[in-house]
Amino acid sequence: MSGKPKVVVFCCNWSVYPGLQLSRMLDDGIDATVEPIVTMCSGRVSPELVVEAFSRGAWGVMVTGCPPEECDHDGNYSARRRMTLLRNTLEQLGISPERIAMDWFSAGESAELKSAVSEFTEQISQLGPMKSVQELA
């Protein structure tokens, strides 16, 4: 195993992120690097962004959105379908579905978010880093 787990958390600006700002840092108390990336809706988190995170060394990616009926754009449902299909797709490439988490939080649920990130980090630290893209041959 090489280095600390690296986790990217895509946070919806309208639910999770205000809560995140009020909370302590997501990686406080855990031996990992957790990078939050704010989006305007979980529906903006395209599978391409998740794959790019993996290609740049993320061990796991968590996508967070508003709970059912709380997203004004139904982007949360779209994100859930996309992440499920992406998991199915990447599993065929030997990438554990456990590396992609999709969860829903309301504004103010920062303690729940922090504990979900901590649990996710624990899970992917068992999986270790992804293999890097191989050079020629």
């Binding site: 391409e48 790019e52 449902y77 499920t84």
Partner: peptide, 26 residues
């Protein structure tokens, strides 16, 4: 586009729908 496959995953998953999306399970 950086990844044609991921883009296709995105496009297809976006146009799928469930009748009762709110209560849908994994």
């Amino acid at each position: 586009v950086l990844d044609a496959g991921a883009k296709a995953v995105s496009a297809i998953a976006s146009i799928l729908e469930l009748e009762d999306e709110e209560n849908a399970t994994e």
